[in-house]
């Protein structure tokens, strides 16, 4: 069974093909292409695309369509011809009336739809990974985040047995503290996750842990939501400042465990010239 998105894509391609076979005019073809893209953005993804991105893409599509239609006199004539015929040919009066009714109706429908969305907190862009401060103080010990490394990372090569002990300790820490929100498989779907906004970070996907250095994680774990800079706001993330509950070693161990469990590597430090 193919996922539904493939059906949508196939259907849209079929429409394009039919238009091509039927030698459809510029007007019909352009309009059909625009709607194809609209439909694809709305239904063509298993995971729905956020409205803000759809608007952005549709804006670009519209600009491109306008540019295409008007960039040649011939094409512009072809595009406007059906519209002109619609307006002046008496035989098409019923269609014209139909359009005259349909357009306001569409506007009304749009209004009705936009008023009927369920009540929801407004969309808000927050910087997910804001720039960390240069240094932080955890348990009265200053840490320079620019040069900070996980002290136990090097054990991975030099002393695998000790590394495994640290991993085991990290596992214990995770399942005693973090699992309730971040979930069994670290997908950000723990049992409390549904009550939180923003939802807990999903570590299983490749776009989070692998892009960050361990020092960044140490900052986020130790300082939590309260330690976020202003740009990371609004401050409604429920991540506690774990420095109040965990020792420094426990935090490093759980960071090791996060990478190990999700089979990812921390981002390497850029070498400065």
């Amino acid at each position: 069974m193919m996922p539904i998105v493939w059906w949508v894509a196939l259907l849209l391609l079929a429409v394009q093909f039919a238009l091509w076979k039927l030698r459809a005019g510029t007007f019909l073809w352009t309009l059909a292409s625009w709607f194809s893209i609209y439909l694809f953005l709305h239904f063509g993804f298993t995971v729905p695309v956020p409205q803000s991105v759809i608007s952005l893409y549709l804006g670009i599509t519209t600009l491109a369509t306008v540019a295409y239609v008007t960039s040649d006199r011939e094409r512009l004539r072809n595009f406007t011809a059906p519209l002109v015929r619609l307006c002046i040919e008496p035989g098409r009066r019923p269609v014209l009336y139909g359009v005259a009714v349909l357009l306001p109706a569409l506007a009304a429908f749009g209004t009705w739809r936009s008023m009927n969305v369920p009540l929801e907190a407004p969309a808000f862009g927050r910087t997910i990974h804001p720039a960390p401060p240069d240094s932080i103080t955890v348990h009265d010990k200053p840490f320079n985040l620019i040069t900070l490394e996980n002290p136990y990372r090097k054990l991975e090569k030099s002393d695998p047995a000790a590394f495994a002990r640290h991993l085991a300790n990290g596992k214990r820490v995770f399942y005693q503290n973090c699992v309730y929100c971040h979930g069994d498989a670290m997908r950000g779907d723990g049992m409390y996750a549904h009550g939180l906004n923003p939802i807990p970070t999903n570590f299983a996907e490749g776009g989070t842990l692998a892009l960050l250095q361990e020092s960044f994680l140490f900052w986020r774990v130790s300082k939590g939501g309260p330690g976020l800079p202003e740009e990371g706001g609004p401050w409604d993330t429920a991540m506690p400042a774990w420095e109040s509950f965990l020792t420094e070693d426990e935090m490093w161990d759980v960071i090791l465990f996060l990478y190990d469990y999700t089979d990812q590597r921390p981002r390497a430090r850029e070498v400065k010239e």
């Binding site: 409205q51 907190a121 996907e205």
Partner: peptide
């Protein structure tokens, strides 16, 4: 970082669209 509502974030399973 995509601007998205809570339900959209939940549907995506995180702040990033797969």
């Amino acid at each position: 970082s995509i601007i998205s509502t809570v339900s959209e974030v939940r549907a995506m399973g995180g702040s990033a669209h797969p």
